[in-house]
Every structure is written in C-alpha cells, then in structure tokens.
C-alpha cells in the first residue's frame, strides 16, 4: 500500500500537487482523507470508479446519467476509466472558491461541449435541458423548451452561426456570473477542519 518514501499510494508528492492546484499541502492531505472515503465506498482499492463517483458527488443511484458521465470524463484526464487521487485533486481544485474564473469557464465549457467539437451546439443544449428536466421531474412542453433555447442563443450566439464557441461562452458567463454557480463548492475551504485526521499522516510542514 505504500511506496518507498512511505507515502500512501496516490499521495506521493503532496507538495507538487499543492504547487499546481489552489490547495495548500495541508489541504491536499485533508483532501486525501476525503478521497480515501469515496474510493472505498464500493471497492476498497484506492481508486474512484464511476459508481463511487456518482454515489459521492451526485447523490443519484441511477444506472446512467449524462452529467455524471461527462463530469467523470473531465476528471479522468488519463482516460483510464478510474480516478486516482491526483486526477481527483486537480479537478476539484477548479471547484475551489479561490480557483481562477478562467479555469471555471474552461471546465464548464468542456462540460457543456458534449461532443468535444470546440463549440456548444443547439442540439447539445436541448439534450442537456431535456435531461435536466427529466432528472428533476419537471415537465415543460417542447414549445417552452424551444423558447428557452432560442432566448439563450439570442444572448450567447453573438456571431449568429447557431453555435456557442469558447469566446462567446466566456462573454456570456462574464455577463451572467450566476451561470458559473455550479462551478464553486464553498465548503472546499473547510477541508482541513472537516478532515482533521490528516495531521496524523502528514509528512510535511505546511507553510
């Protein structure tokens, strides 16, 4: 379970992760306590599979979810189908209140660019709206959905080409910051007080 320098698997270099994320070394070590809890929920293997990810981060127990799949893929930067601690920490860093707005804009753009074409197309927006309504039990007519999407594209698609590119997305969210609300988890600031047991395993003095 441990490597030669006696650090737990996945937490080999907390200082490097702290330098490359918004978390401090202590916060990285506390985040590892959260990671251990999530990664042992179904299979205690030190890795987060999609089922554990869905249970922990979305509180839904359905077989398939468009957003769970998309968010999991964005966390899974090594495309292995499972998340190691480094991937988990780097992705969650974007959701920290202190993360750069540009990083949140980039992540949210990729989240909504379902087909990863470099732009968000109308059909993708409709698919996401229909999925959201279905998951939340809301029932809106197709006319109302089309109207919402029309209005959204009137606001966002300033180049009038039927799609939203990254520049248009950035302009839209800067005009409407509430669209990034789902990109910030305020409680990540409390990670060390929520998981104080990290101090028993800490191998570094934080600065």
């Amino acid at each position: 379970c441990c490597d030669l320098n006696n650090q737990p698997r996945g937490l080999e270099d907390p200082e490097l992760l702290a330098r490359e994320t918004v978390f401090s070394v202590s916060e990285i070590e506390a985040l590892y306590e959260l990671f251990k809890r999530i990664s042992s929920a179904v299979i205690d293997d030190g890795l987060i599979n999609k089922e554990e990810f869905q249970l922990a981060l979305f509180k839904i127990n359905k077989k398939e979810s468009l957003f769970v799949d998309r968010v999991f893929d964005l966390f899974d930067t090594k495309h292995s189908g499972i998340l190691g601690f480094e991937e988990f920490a780097r992705a969650l860093s974007v959701f920290h209140p202190n993360a750069l707005v540009d990083d949140k804009i980039e992540f949210s753009f990729q989240l909504y660019d379902l087909k990863q074409q470099g732009f968000i197309e109308r059909q993708e927006v409709k698919q996401m709206v229909v999925t959201t309504l279905a998951e939340s039990g809301m029932n809106l007519s197709d006319d109302v959905i089309e109207n919402i999407i029309n209005k959204t594209f009137e606001q966002a698609d300033t180049k009038h080409d039927g799609k939203i590119d990254k520049e248009e997305w950035k302009n839209l969210v800067l005009r409407h910051p509430s669209l990034l609300k789902n990109m910030t988890l305020q409680y990540l600031k409390d990670i060390t007080t929520t998981f104080p047991s990290f101090v028993f395993h800490s191998q570094v003095d934080d600065t």
Partner: peptide, 30 residues
C-alpha cells in the same frame, strides 16, 4: 399581435446547472 405566454426569464444554462452540479456537502456536514 400580442405575445401570449409569460416572458422567458431562465437561461438554458441556468437550468442545466441544476443537474450538472457536484455535491460533496454530505461529507462536510458537522
């Protein structure tokens, strides 16, 4: 011709944000 229904106030991405929201709050409850 008058527009019949109420004006649409919600942006599609506000709606989508409801489903695409991560929720780790259960781990942070005191």
């Amino acid at each position: 011709q008058r527009n019949s229904g109420p004006p649409i106030l919600i942006n599609a991405f506000q709606l989508i944000g409801m489903s695409s929201c991560l929720d780790l709050s259960g781990f942070f409850e005191k």
